[in-house]
Design a protein around this nucleic acid. Structure first.
Lengths: 338, 338
DNA sequence: TGAGCACGTGACAACGTTATCAACCCAATG
DNA sequence: CATTGGGTTGATAACGTTGTCACGTGCTCA
């Protein structure tokens, strides 16, 4: 700007005024300054502008697990949309489920003075963010609640959805239901598992731990876990997969071996209705979910502090046919008699 | 930092040193400064740091069409991965195919002093970036070449892939091949269509414009276009869909009406092998594609100027079965006799 | 003993911008 | 004619940080 000012024969401040469309500048000077700026290839530096004026950076941070997962990429897309409506850009960072990395990324984002944070928490202690929150950086937690910190949170009705899913399988006559889940350390997995247990308990069906397979991280391991479960001498007649990645792996394996086990998955996904087997899913509106969180964030960015709110969005059992349980008094029964 | 310095009874510079782990500071002072910083809730301001030191912002910008499309979200994921390996964060912005918006976003990213830009160009004139490129902001174009500007570019062998696809359909005996594409204004669509034409010409099959449907933007319109094409009195016996979104829509419609038309799609996608109909696709390694571009970018970021390079990645016809053309001398033949 | 050097510390300017305020011009007012 | 006031312009300080340099201390080495 100094160079432009010298070149145009005006003061620094006048250049600033022209660049910012400020009033009270002669047209002739405006033209001169713009010409000089163009000639010298002047590019405004937003960092300096932000620093001096104390304005916002027009940036928000989104911390998720991994963008490649369609669940998170949809969230990222919606967050970017909402951000755009507020003339804001989005920095997306992946924690890869690593609490240390999460903390480091959040600190980094804070030091970049983002206007707000949208966080799918991975770690189990977010008290290090307390100072930020108290100092007024808006934070909204998504999909999982933060621990050690009060803040806006948007969740799904994981428990209710899982309960309905298992309920449905029980109604169809299934008694041996295999459950595949990612790490029990993840909030959503715990909740969904609890919901499943509630449904079993309510139906008076014993909770068989050997039918629960934890630590299923991706479609590949889900396929393996499915295979192992079906290869048992007393295989389940139905599977309940606790997230979309696991469901995909289970579908592949069931299809490969032409098994007729029933399958209900948590999370809907594109093309789920075209799967080679009838696939009932616990569905919800991911975009609505993400939009709620993003709008909560901007509300806080624009209006300032309020009491932390928690929003829980409903889920819906989307039935696409469900193979029935085999006739009673088969292996399953006998096994349970042991 | 001034407050911390006063509180700790040291100079500003000493605080700076402590914060940056600079050598030559007594342990006792380090402790005192850290204690004061913690007590006052000091958070370093990277903007100021970057401004003063002239260091990089450790940020790159990614400009794509829309993150919700799995093709782009994979690119974003890989870009973020590569960026992370260089301790850099990623700002993702969507142009929504709007050239004006694209230009505005690119300017914005430049004014934020990103270290580099990864761009899937939407507009048809990128000369406005020439100044940036010449002043040393590294830019890599992805998926489509930039116009009016020399810069690194990473492309797919669109033409070759499309040629192979149509070739394969012709080999299977198909003579009436419907082609569904997004806007002809998009580079990849033009290239793929050209490849298809080349294969037809080589086989001596006339190029029938009525079998080409342009402007198919999403799965929904693809399904409609598919329906319309199959409802003709002289329907095609095979379809070639020119991107993943169109393929999805076509699969849905073919499946819905239990048509036995053959289908080959450009772009592979997750679960494509589980589709209810055999689906042959022109596949390529999206992650490799994105990684190539991102690494080209960081090479330029770190090593500075070199001559612009263009990389073209190969595609591969992934055959998953293809229904054969109907017996000769059917409708299709008769129609061509007109 | 004194030069040389490594270490430890702080004063000050600077990065590129904007806020503040003073100064100027000129027309309108009393 | 002096006074007011709006429009226009610029000098200067400041945003939060780091680079530069100068200074003091204590040690080593010839």
């Amino acid at each position: 700007m100094v160079d432009v000012a010298r070149h145009a024969g005006v003061s620094l401040k006048t250049v600033s005024r022209v660049i910012n469309d400020a009033p009270h500048v002669q047209q002739s000077l405006i033209d001169k300054v713009l010409a000089s700026a163009a000639e010298l290839g002047f590019r405004p530096n937003r960092l300096a502008s932000t620093l001096r004026s104390g304005q916002s950076t027009a940036t928000i941070g989104l911390l998720i697990e991994e963008i490649a997962n369609p669940f998170y990429s949809t969230i990222a897309a919606v967050a970017a949309e909402v951000a755009r409506a507020h003339d804001t850009l989005l920095i997306t960072a992946s924690s890869e489920e690593d609490p240390e990395r999460e903390q480091q990324l959040l600190r980094d984002l804070c030091s970049r003075r983002v206007d707000g944070l949208l966080v799918v928490p991975a770690g189990d202690d977010h008290s290090f963010l307390r100072a930020e929150v108290e100092m007024g950086i808006p934070v909204v937690f998504l999909d999982r609640p933060a621990t050690g910190l009060l803040a806006d949170t948007v969740l799904l009705d994981n428990r209710g959805g899982a309960r309905a899913a298992v309920q449905r399988l029980l109604d169809a006559g299934h008694r041996r239901i295999g459950i595949l889940l990612d790490s029990i350390g993840v909030y959503t997995m715990r909740e969904r598992l609890s919901g499943a247990q509630e449904a079993l308990a309510q139906a008076g069906v014993a909770y068989d731990l050997t039918l629960v397979r934890e630590g299923v991280r991706d479609p590949m391991t889900a396929a393996v876990a499915t295979a192992e479960m079906l290869d048992r001498s007393d295989p389940p007649t139905a599977l309940f997969t606790l997230n979309n990645r696991i469901t995909v792996g289970a579908v592949q394996e069931l299809w490969r071996r032409e098994s007729d086990a029933a399958l209900v998955g948590f999370d809907d996904f594109e093309l789920s209705h075209l799967m080679p087997r009838p696939l009932t899913v616990v569905a919800y509106d991911v975009r609505e979910f993400a939009r709620t969180a993003a709008e909560l964030l901007f509300e806080r960015v624009n209006r300032g502090q309020t009491w932390p709110r928690t929003v829980v969005l409903p889920t819906q059992l989307l039935e696409r046919g469900l193979s029935l349980a085999p006739a009673p008094a088969t292996k399953a029964r006998r096994t349970r008699a042991h």
